[in-house]
Amino acid sequence: MSSPFSTLEEFNSAIDGPTEGAIYTFANSPVINNIALIVAAGIFIWFIASTYRTPAEPSRADKSMNNLSSFIVVGLLSLVAINHRPPEQTSTTVAERKGQDTLQHNSVKTNALTKYLRSSSGPSPMGLLGMVGLGFPTFSRLRKQRKSRSLRRYRTRR
């Protein structure tokens, strides 16, 4: 019984009784109320801790090298495109000739840069870096998948 009183008379004259006026639950056995108080304090600490668990977390920064390697590859491709010389074509029409002339005229402007690049030509280390960058996360993912697959097999066998 959580009531400190057994009769209505005791309840009505609580001020003169052993609880000295207290009429609340477990007033005659304060241990229970003290335990409840400790649990209540624990709940409050739980609440404070839970406020740090923001439910809508901001999107995490991409820690993989995909973006970086994509930038490297795109940069490399642009350099390769400058080096690339289109195959010579025999023009037949006037319009095509005009277009060819324009291209040749433009290519003069980039001649100096092309010469510089040719001088430092050879297999670009950046290109290799980009390929490695692209391949590395995929490779590590594959390794993880293999690991988890083997673990799953292991668990199901057991």
Binding site: I23, Y24, T25, F26, N33, N34, A36, V39, A40, I43
Partner: peptide
């Protein structure tokens, strides 16, 4: 229902 009877600590637990 028992607002007139509960001790404050019990109120916190039941309400929670």
């Amino acid at each position: 229902a028992g607002l007139d009877l509960y001790s404050p600590a019990i109120v916190i637990l039941i309400a929670f």
